[in-house]
Design a protein around this nucleic acid. Structure first.
Lengths: 345, 345
DNA sequence: CTGTTAGCGCTTTCAA
DNA sequence: TTGAAAGCGCTAACAG
């Protein structure tokens, strides 16, 4: 056990009072201390291997300099979360640039309430970023009312909590516009999830808007439901493949679901993109390595984490937040599954 | 701002002393307190919305109940880390079961030293799990000598720090044995990385051992170097495909690298697994969705996190650690790329 | 059974 | 310029 060196010991060795030690080491402004005392203190601290105790410091400062990242997902979901590393990177990178540490707290949904609320109520953290908020979360409104600093990654229209999310409508429009620009007109869609999820509903809305802006009618028969998994994509695509005439292109609102769709297509004579163009959504790491590499809409996961941390720390610092609901832009990533690269190569 | 309710206020409302409040709320053993006082205190606490301040508690208990998870990787690497969600899940799940929180601290390698050492020296955490330790890390031996509680995920033979790692030799042997059991004899290998990495050297050692145990000679010409990326796998496989006679099977010591190898094979007339069997290593999520689904060796990422947390908390609690260097078993995951499922379907 | 009291290590007025 | 002293909110000996 390393016996902790206290400021008092440093003071003694340097022959000054603890106060002086504190002033010197923290470089307190207004205080003008003789150069000699200063070096004496610094040397003593160095020699003794002194490091101020974070807990004691928190005690008096009243702030922890830690933000919590709360994940409202089941362990299985955390497992399969392609974006966790990126969101977490963005979050902790920004936090660290502002002198904050990041507490990682995955709290399963069934672990009702008190799991993550303790984080803020017992002041383990100065505030939290809550990913995947649930509208049936009864504790959230409470701690919000208690004045806890919270930023949501996702949506929860019922509550007036600052949030950050992806512009799903805009992203879907980008996808459709790309398809349109390549001359496709009969464009089908497979959703990423049931429409009860706002992300899913928004992506379909973007699909529809882009179509209508191009003077094309929305045909419900061309829209099939995906359900997070490749299996659901396989099924949905099989249905689409039974249609006559065939769609010319398919917008799959999730790359994971698109993987299954590709498998269904592979079992036919159809070739991607020559006979059927395919565009995904999310830009998961493997897109580059499937055959053909999947054109998709990039989800700014790093930005989500970064932005959430930025908003939260602003909140904690008591600064004003300009926009309480932030939407991040997506980006079209052109690879080979839509045929846009045909002439280039 | 929620004005914090202190134990003193609870005491006042309940008409007792702070001590009693503390005893009741913490359910201190030996203390026998009248049922009536007890309920009075509990009710007062509840009514006031009292939550003990974690910082104050740490101050006196001397422990933070937080463990740090330090990632010695560049942001790019964190990004591409397929296993982070799993390791982190395992770690935080075990930690939480023992009443610990997890502090996530990615510290780039170039951010020399003092980055993560502060975590332990300033007592932000009770100990750390260090993932991806570097032998050129000069601070690590120091804080270890200072008595910090540390568990390594990976290897660092030069230091006597408890560590946990995957049994890479055993895993590679499993892969080769599977190939052998399917009748393959001329088995090539593509490494996952340069041999300077212990994981890479160990996997090649396992390949060699399995071969020799089966009475087969090790042929250096059948071994090519991968370098983390699919591109490197593509290149290495291209070299292998130029060999005559062709290998019957290839063990690629990384699924990511195997992705590139598959692409190289796809450009020939060879079919997997009929003409060439392929087995990977790692079991990344996308293995199921490539064509054909990749047979591989499962890396117990969740177990790595779980086990590291277990060792660390044992260390913190002052318990004895039976094995200081733990090796986790891998597992063969049979899919379609080796032909083992031929007869089944 | 319950209250008094003394800190944990640090920051920070207020005096000297 | 520097030092003395007052807490931050809580726990835990030690009395009563």
């Amino acid at each position: 056990m390393p016996k902790k060196v206290t400021a008092a010991e440093v003071a003694e060795v340097a022959g000054v009072s603890r106060t002086t030690v504190s002033f010197v080491l923290n470089n307190v402004p207004g205080m003008r201390i003789s150069e000699e005392t200063r070096t004496r203190v610094i040397e003593a601290a160095h020699k003794l291997g002194y490091h101020p105790d974070a807990t004691a410091r928190r005690m008096v400062s009243g702030k922890t300099s830690v933000i919590g990242f709360v994940l409202r997902q089941s362990p299985d979901q955390v497992f399969a979360d392609h974006f966790l590393p990126q969101v977490l990177s963005g979050l902790s990178q920004y936090a660290s640039s502002e002198g904050y540490y990041t507490l990682f707290a995955p709290i399963p949904l069934d672990d009702n309430s008190d799991g993550y609320t303790r984080l803020v109520r017992e002041r383990h953290v100065d505030g939290i970023v809550l990913s995947g908020p649930r509208s049936d979360d009864e504790e959230l409104p409470k701690i919000h009312a208690e004045g806890a600093h919270i930023v949501l990654v996702g949506q929860l229209p019922s509550l007036d909590i600052p949030s950050i999310d992806v512009d799903n409508v805009g992203g879907a429009k980008q996808a459709i516009q790309h398809l349109l620009s390549l001359g496709h007109r009969r464009i089908a869609m497979i959703t990423n999830a049931p429409l009860a999820y706002t992300a899913s509903a928004d992506r379909r809305a973007g699909y529809r808007q882009a179509l209508e802006e191009a003077g094309l009618a929305y045909d419900a028969n061309l829209v099939r439901m995906g359900d997070f998994t490749p299996q659901s994509g396989y099924r949905a695509m099989s249905e689409l493949l039974a249609l006559r005439p065939l769609p010319e292109a398919v917008f799959v609102a999730s790359d994971t679901v698109a993987l299954g769709a590709m498998q269904a297509i592979r079992q036919t004579d159809l070739r991607i993109p020559q006979d059927l163009a395919l565009i995904g959504f999310d830009d998961i790491p493997l897109d580059e390595y499937v055959d053909p590499p999947l054109t998709t809409i990039h989800l700014p996961a790093f930005g989500l984490g970064w932005g959430a941390a930025e908003m939260l720390i602003r909140l904690i610092s008591g600064e004003e937040i300009r926009t309480r609901q932030v939407y991040l832009d997506t980006e079209l990533v052109v690879r080979d599954s839509c045929g846009a690269n045909q002439n280039k190569s």
